[in-house]
């Protein structure tokens, strides 16, 4: 069983909704990322999404675009991100890590190379935003050969036919994009999310995470009622941006923020 599947199984046994923070690797500087990952785990993160910077992030709003630009200014490449996961794994063998980004850096490295290096470093899966199942065949093959999961997105525009197809292609979990828009967009329509999650869960057996638009503890708690995982990105990344001049404070501040989300979600789980 993959580390991701094992983690969701143990969470289910404890009736706990997963908290999945997203941060861009190398933002605001390369030295902050690994200590930040450990701080997030200590604060209650169950899985970490680590953003791989790409020059043309078409699915990201301004907050993550700026994080990407900071990371690229630090010269962060895909191989550096993989090295950060290797460093993280030196003291954390349990927490799954999923790399989230765009296809081109993986194309340049080569699918098989990427899968081999990522697996060796302790990466558990990849979410490649611009690869739908229609184009994912070769990439899935390369990742599966190394025991890595390919996490797919679902969107409010996904038809039932597409949901089934994505359910069949995905492994680990699926990521429901709760709003039509880019990361950090607007506010989330809870009733609409509940309705779509009902459809998704009736069609595919994998755990379903919900992200895009979860900005605070109250929303996280509400989504925790509905989903298997709550994914928070821009709300964390904007706090990192505020602290870019004092990066040594970032792990503690983000840890406090996540603890607040975790507490609100756990209250929701118990309720």
């Amino acid at each position: 069983m993959s580390r991701i599947a094992a983690r969701f199984e143990s969470l289910r046994a404890r009736a706990r909704t997963a908290l999945i923070p997203f941060v861009t690797a190398g933002d605001p500087d390369p030295a902050t990322t690994v200590p930040l990952m450990h701080a997030m785990v200590a604060a209650g993160a169950d899985l970490i999404e680590l953003g791989v910077p790409f020059s043309d992030p078409i699915a990201d709003g301004p907050v993550i675009q700026r994080a990407t630009e900071r990371a690229l200014a630090n010269g962060i490449a895909l191989s550096d991100v993989i090295a950060m996961v290797r460093a993280f794994r030196a003291t954390d063998a349990q927490t799954p890590v999923v790399l989230m980004g765009y296809l081109n850096p993986i194309e340049v490295m080569g699918y098989a190379q990427f899968a081999a290096q990522a697996a060796a470093a302790g990466v558990d899966g990849a979410l490649v935003v611009d690869v739908p199942p229609e184009e994912g065949h070769d990439l899935v093959g390369a990742l599966r050969a190394q025991g890595l999961d390919l996490v797919y997105l679902l969107a409010p525009t996904s038809t039932e036919q597409r949901i089934r197809r994505i359910g069949a292609a995905a492994s680990g979990f699926v990521y429901y994009v709760s709003v039509k828009g880019v990361t950090g967009a607007g506010h989330l329509d809870l009733a609409g999310v509940a309705e779509r999650l009902g459809v998704i869960k009736s069609l595919i057996p994998l755990p379903v995470g919900v992200g895009f638009g979860i900005k605070d503890a109250a929303t996280a708690a509400q989504v925790a009622h509905l989903a298997d995982a709550v994914i928070v990105g821009s709300a964390i990344v904007s706090r990192i941006e505020d602290l870019a001049a004092t990066p040594q404070r970032i792990p503690a501040v983000i840890g406090d923020f996540l603890s607040g989300l975790r507490a609100a979600m756990d209250g929701a789980d118990r309720g």
Binding site: I58, L103, D130, P132, E134, E135, A155, T157, R162, V177
Partner: peptide, 12 residues
């Protein structure tokens, strides 16, 4: 060529 876009755009 192909269709390398986020899921939200696939149905449109």
């Amino acid at each position: 060529g192909g269709l390398f876009v986020p899921e939200t755009l696939m149905q449109p």
